[in-house]
Design a protein around this nucleic acid. Structure first.
Lengths: 149, 149
DNA sequence: AAATAAATCGGAATGATTCTTATGAATGTA
DNA sequence: TACATTCATAAGAATCATTCCGATTTATTT
């Protein structure tokens, strides 16, 4: 999935092509990380001065419905990222600071699937959390600084 | 961990013993399921007429800090359950309707641990979602009913 | 260019959670 | 037991993310 494919999908499904939608998709396509609604707004409100939260949320939710974006819930916020183009099922390692992700190819539900007669299984979530190199370094420096004062 | 141990832990750490805390813990100990703050309030406000959300949230967060409760975020809400007494690391299968849980003994981070030089890993989440027997049955019946009308 | 259906704005409404301030309750000590 | 101290609580205000609504604007179709 890329921006062009996503825009085509929108048109196919009867949704309109707008500059805001294009820019939103471009934003996600540029970064392999989870982004919250407020960050999307922030990125675009220079270009679109009256940009409303409603527009952001409506489009994020539309994009998710259409499979253009993946979503997760973290730290009290819904976060979104461009759907990975790899065609195999996978999970992510996620930076708790900046949302940056890395693929995890193994899926526990594939390697040792959970099934239970008492439960009808409909989905699963496997996420590994940590700090990416950059954010880890920032934390280390801040920590050092704190110790000085 | 049981209610008594939890109350002892509170005292050890300098927190006071109150009836509300006891009842909250009792509520969790009775049920092996994830419960949201509003449900805790609902369960206790017959007995404690002026019971405030603040009390619930403050205590839930205290219990979590002390390791008395486990927590997860689901459907836009923080949910809590009594810490499992088993001493080995494990995960849960969770009913999306009522929060009921079942243990999953296998952990993907143990069977095939994820590590990455670029990321400093600090945690992970593995949850399987579904519907328990009871809620699945309810859904089936509702569905049938919808078709009739 | 006009018609129409969808998208957007702006702000109000909602729902979960946290904060604040004054009051009340539990514990330790005399 | 009485008192002081410290923690816990109530009530409601404040905050934050998210959704909803009515009026207006824009993209597409004709």
């Amino acid at each position: 999935m890329n921006v062009e494919e996503a825009m085509n999908k929108l048109k196919e499904e009867g949704y309109k092509h707008t500059d805001k939608r294009l820019d939103m998709l471009q934003l996600f396509s540029d970064e392999s990380r989870y982004i919250a609604a407020k960050d999307v707004l922030e990125s675009l409100q220079d270009k679109y001065k009256g940009l409303s939260f409603d527009t952001i949320y409506r489009n994020l939710s539309l994009f998710s419905q259409l499979g253009i974006l993946e979503t997760t819930e973290l730290d009290g916020e819904k976060k979104f990222r461009f759907s990975c183009s790899t065609d195999h099922h996978h999970h992510h390692l996620i930076c708790l600071d900046c949302g940056k992700t890395k693929h995890i190819d193994e899926c526990p539900m594939v390697t040792s699937p959970i099934s239970d007669e008492g439960f009808q299984v409909v989905g699963h979530k496997f996420e590994v959390y940590g700090y990416c190199e950059k954010c880890g370094e920032t934390k280390r420096k801040l920590n050092e600084y704190e110790k000085l004062s």
